[in-house]
Amino acid sequence: MIRAAVLSVLIISADAAIAADPAASLRPTSRGGNSAQQPVTLEQSGAIAQPAQSTQQENAKTGGGLFSSLRPFFRTKKVAREGRALKKLREQGAVCGDVAIQGEVVGRVTGKIRGCVIENAVRVRSVSGVGLSQKSVMDCQTASAIKNWLDGSAKPALAKQGGGLQTLRVAAHYACRTRNNQKGAKLSEHGKGRAIDISAFKLRDGTEVSVLKGWNAARFSSAMRRMHKGACGPFGTVLGPNANRFHRDHFHFDTARYRSGSYCK
């Protein structure tokens, strides 16, 4: 009897509490003015606890998600620092997916002669820290070949001369023309964005060495020949003062490929 009385009191108290606070009930309740009753969700009923405000704010800051919260554990300070440096360099104008090649994207370039087309041209202003005397239009394969040549041959060849290499004197880059501007000749690789002509090298102390004068100069002949030879590989065609009368005063480099390999003279 006593137990039954206690149980009755508890039930009456629970019903009174629910009546006082309908939101605490899991049963449908009417919503103002609408005779149709709509179910209350578990979140609305309070059956599922809502995250604290501070936790919500923290999730907003981190972007939420498991991997966002674990990201700091996967990156060292060095990797994060290198990532920021890479982003900065890209913002400064990296092209061809290489931060060492600085310039701007041009897109498709066409000329008056049939075949004078570059599908994805770039205008390059510097490569591996070495400036070009004029912004030069080419494709990314040629830009990458310049980088490989500079890093592997040109910069080392002049490292002990006048403080090192600073600028390449560009005689020609993209131009829709025939080879050596000869009437009836085949289309030049310059017309395809695959070539660059270099006539001189400027050093950091202000000295400028031309191919014409430096090729046989006692001070620079060794470096000139090293740069000429080192270009054979990164480029498909390498022509210099010994090639013919058209190249006495400059190096011609292009990325045309032949079955027999590179042609260097």
Rank of each mutant, 00 (worst) to 15 (best):
V105W: 02
G129E: 03
Q102G: 05
L132N: 00
Q57M: 11
G115Q: 07
A60N: 12
N120K: 14
Q38N: 13
T62L: 06
E43C: 09
K112L: 11
L26H: 07
V95F: 01
G93P: 06
S30Q: 13
Q57L: 10
Q102F: 03
N59I: 02
G63H: 03
G63K: 02
V109C: 03
V79P: 01
Q102L: 08
K88V: 08
R84E: 15
G65A: 07
A100S: 13
S69D: 09
Q38F: 11
R123M: 01
S68M: 06
V95P: 01
A49P: 03
G103H: 01
F67A: 14
G131H: 08
K77L: 08
R27L: 14
V79E: 15
R84M: 13
Q53H: 08
G83F: 08
Q56V: 12
T55L: 12
E91Y: 04
Q37N: 11
V99G: 02
G65L: 04
T110W: 09
Q102D: 05
A121K: 00
Q44K: 13
K87G: 14
S35R: 12
Q50M: 11
D98E: 09
E91K: 13
G129L: 06
T76R: 03
K112I: 07
I101T: 02
F67T: 10
F67S: 14
R81N: 14
A94H: 06
A24D: 09
P72W: 02
R125N: 07
R108N: 10
V95A: 01
D98F: 02
L86K: 10
Q56Y: 02
G46A: 08
E43H: 06
L26R: 09
V122Y: 04
D98M: 02
R75T: 11
A94Q: 05
V109W: 00
R31E: 15
E91Q: 13
A47K: 08
K112Y: 05
V109K: 00
V105S: 15
V130A: 01
R114H: 10
V127G: 00
A36M: 12
L89V: 06
E58A: 13
P28H: 12
A94W: 03
T62I: 09
S126T: 03
V79D: 10
A100H: 05
R31C: 08
R125L: 01
K77Y: 09
E43L: 15
T62N: 10
T41M: 09
G111P: 03
V122W: 01
T29A: 15
L66M: 10
Q37F: 10
T110P: 06
A80K: 14
E119V: 14
N59A: 12
P51Y: 01
Q44L: 07
I113G: 04
A85L: 15
L70E: 03
V105M: 07
V99A: 11
R125H: 08
S69C: 05
A36L: 13
V106R: 07
Q92F: 02
